[in-house]
Design a protein around this nucleic acid. Sequence first.
DNA 1: TTGTAAGCGTTATCAG
DNA 2: CTGATAACGCTTACAA
Lengths: 334, 334
Amino acid sequence: MTITIKDVAKKANVSISTVSRVINKSKPVSDDIRERVEEVIKELNYEPNQIARSLVMKKTNLIGVIVPDISSFFVGEILNAIEQIAKVYNYDIILCNSYAEREQELKYLNLLMNKHVEGLVFISYKIQKEHKEFIKNAKFPVVLINRFIKEFESMSVSIDNEKATYDMTKYLIGKGSKSIALIRSGDSDDMFINDQLLGYQKALKEESVEYNRSLVYDGIFKIEKAYKLVEKMIEDDNVPDAIFATNDDAAIAAMNCLLDNGYKIPEDVQVAGFHDTQIAKLFRPGLTTIKQPIFDLGSVATRMLIKKINEDVELNESNVKIMPHELIKRESSK
Amino acid sequence: MTITIKDVAKKANVSISTVSRVINKSKPVSDDIRERVEEVIKELNYEPNQIARSLVMKKTNLIGVIVPDISSFFVGEILNAIEQIAKVYNYDIILCNSYAEREQELKYLNLLMNKHVEGLVFISYKIQKEHKEFIKNAKFPVVLINRFIKEFESMSVSIDNEKATYDMTKYLIGKGSKSIALIRSGDSDDMFINDQLLGYQKALKEESVEYNRSLVYDGIFKIEKAYKLVEKMIEDDNVPDAIFATNDDAAIAAMNCLLDNGYKIPEDVQVAGFHDTQIAKLFRPGLTTIKQPIFDLGSVATRMLIKKINEDVELNESNVKIMPHELIKRESSK
DNA sequence: TTGTAAGCGTTATCAG
DNA sequence: CTGATAACGCTTACAA
């Protein structure tokens, strides 16, 4: 039923190799034959079968993407970028949503290998041993967004997390805060997350504010969880004078909880986020936050990946790209 | 380098057909041989090549998804559902972001056909002639979310749009509004969008409020555009006493503009949205909106599609599913 | 129950 | 420049 290269060949009175050649412009074909073949192709509305092609060329033009949560602002915007750039280079995206669960991530890692993707953009809150193992041995290049693997050279795109938390912490202290809660998305044993703590601590130290471990909360990436966390602070009568969440959603949730309980922002509590997703600007009061070049994070990662796929680039230090960040001041801080 | 069915066959001292049989359990294989083969498979860490398999079986286990804007809340949540359900049935997702542009949509429609997807979930603001043509002739089933094609039986999942806008309009009038701006995402020649107008008009009529064409705005799905629109109303001193946007993002943008210009919500202007995305609840004042079962929209569509792919279902009227909606009252209305 | 061989739709090698 | 023909890795009649 579906028409193949054979049909074209027969109708054009040439061999299938010739048809293949005009399709791929892989070898010279005389003008008259070329024209004839092209005509037949049009006439028959022939489209080469990508699967057959993949089989022999070992090229699928597929890029895998594993994300922790499609419906988050941050990931949505990154996906946007990945998709856009990939399409430019004629790559398609296979999307996998891991729900930030290790099991799922590992499953997808294998699934994508099986689907013969040519590369992978991996967004994970926590890179674990098994991940590293996989990435190290993977037959295709992998680029991480907002994470590093320090044990070996992995491709990675992110901002300077230490500097970013440093900047924000310093800023909040400058505006008069003395007890700044730090709400982090990941777990403390993640290098990336660790950088955030380092920046926070460095700023405290510089400003002679004592570091208090109990002000640091980990593993909060769900809105509900962040809300509950702040609720608990209020119940315990233990509300800091600033809350710095390393993701905007959590910061918004914190603001909601504070507002719902009669606190004034920023007078009673300053609130700061991370990412500068849409909602940071939309929400009232506007959220002071670290602006990341989210789209660029995705697009740079994808370009890097595709370059690597095509071996245009060697595995060297330039495989880690640090993008600029910016402190955006809005009404949630003084 | 990569290990194939041949390697397994050789090492297990059987033919490749036998190996194939144990992999697919397609025909009986004696216990001892089966065990031997399974052992070798494990030993060699063999994984069947999906591409080769696709070629012969004409089955890719791929579902295409075309969306207008990945980074919107609504689409993100739907994608979430699609991905989740698809994975349950062992299907993967090829993601295409059309930016709501007709050209892109058509391009992707062809691309997906070329990739031999087995089905398509199509989210488009505006189904046009070319789309219909394509869908009608497509070799694979297509399910639309929130759109219908009335010309022929297409699979479709949505809410009852007429009833939803009717409910909301009636509610706003009940709360005292007389001039209700209707801000719609799509264009007026779309059937789906048209239903929204019908519901709006019906409610007005029932409540003896005169219909005023100039209060209906079309083609507003970008936040910026909605903001500008309301800004214009304010400049023209032409602010209605209620704004009903058929998507939450636009409603939030409207609220922002009103708040920024000193208007009180809901005292001066009531605002209502559509979808009940995360932000409707997060924003302050909370947004009164039509709650759609967003996740279900995606999951039902995907299940329907997969069933159709497997021919479990005939093309009949049950191919159009209407999901329930709900009016959620929050502080943006009286 | 098992093996042989044809075929899925291409590209690529090698003669001519 | 063009055409056979052998891959690519797998499934599936058809035979044995």
